[in-house]
């Protein structure tokens, strides 16, 4: 059983340990929360807020440094929201869609780039907040709420007409969609990020040097794409809810 011995040997290297499904629990009265998720999410939030404050603290007409970067980011987000919602409607939804992208993107990349595992916490290890199903489901449910809110705000109860248009036969499918949308959103993000971290971890576990690097690069790419997909889909769902039938442009 030399193989197992070898395995145990590699297992003892701290970089190569796999921790799945273990949580660092905090108890808030009767509530139980995953501490590691909140710790990393606070880190992500701190990055975003700090960068924003530094960028907008002293706004210049000719931007430079961080302001320039953040304006570039904002223009990217505006394009993203505008492509989905259209010129007229995108402004009120820009903060929501843009923050979805930023939060997911920074979370994913923090998981892929930062050596969270160096910081020791009891019972588990730190990872991207999007690595936890609670986070992705929370974001997906917020997206659902957002498009319901958008629809009701725009059309009132007439929003329900969406379910029977263009043909009432699709009613069950449309109702089903309200459940599949958050489900697919959350599981896509969760699955991709978790799988990416697992694959990298397993590969590091097998070959600790160099071989995992291309996969890590791929992980960065996937992470960015997942953030983009989540934000784009959120925009698309909101657009679907507020678009008026009869004058469809697509």
């Amino acid at each position: 059983m030399t193989v197992i011995n070898a395995l145990n040997l590699t297992n003892s290297i701290p970089l190569a340990s796999l921790e799945v499904g273990k949580h660092f629990y905090w108890y808030l009265g009767p509530l139980r929360v995953h501490g590691q998720v909140f710790l990393t999410s606070w880190f992500v939030i701190a990055i975003l807020v700090t960068a924003s404050i530094l960028a907008s603290r002293n706004v210049q007409r000719i931007p430079s440094g961080l302001q320039n970067l953040m304006e570039y980011v904002l223009e990217f987000l505006r394009d993203l929201a505008r492509n989905q919602l259209g010129e007229k409607e995108y402004r009120p939804w820009l903060p929501f869609i843009g923050t979805l992208f930023l939060f997911i993107f920074v979370s994913n990349w923090s998981g892929a780039l930062l050596p969270w595992k160096i910081i020791e916490i009891p019972n588990t290890e730190l990872a991207a907040p999007t690595n936890d199903i609670n986070t992705t489901v929370a974001l997906a449910l917020l997206t659902s709420l957002a498009y319901f809110y958008a629809g009701f705000k725009k059309k009132g109860l007439g929003y329900f007409a969406n379910y029977v248009e263009p043909i009432p036969i699709l009613l069950p499918i449309k109702i089903l969609e309200d459940f599949t949308k958050p489900l697919s959103l959350s599981f896509r993000l969760f699955g991709n990020i978790l799988a990416d971290e697992l694959v990298v971890a397993v590969l590091v576990f097998l070959v600790p040097l160099f071989i995992p690097l291309p996969l890590m690069a791929l992980g960065l790419f996937t992470s960015a794409i997942q953030a983009l997909v989540f934000a784009t889909l959120a925009g698309a769902y909101i657009h679907e809810a507020i678009e008026s039938h009869g004058e469809e442009e697509h």
Partner: peptide, 27 residues
């Protein structure tokens, strides 16, 4: 543990909404 839903979910949603409001103000 993988699909361990608990109070993290609503709190994360709340936290995200706060982040949206915060970034709306400063970004």
């Amino acid at each position: 543990g993988l699909f361990d839903f608990d109070a993290t979910l609503p709190l994360m949603a709340l936290q995200f909404l706060v982040l949206v409001a915060l970034l709306n103000a400063v970004f």
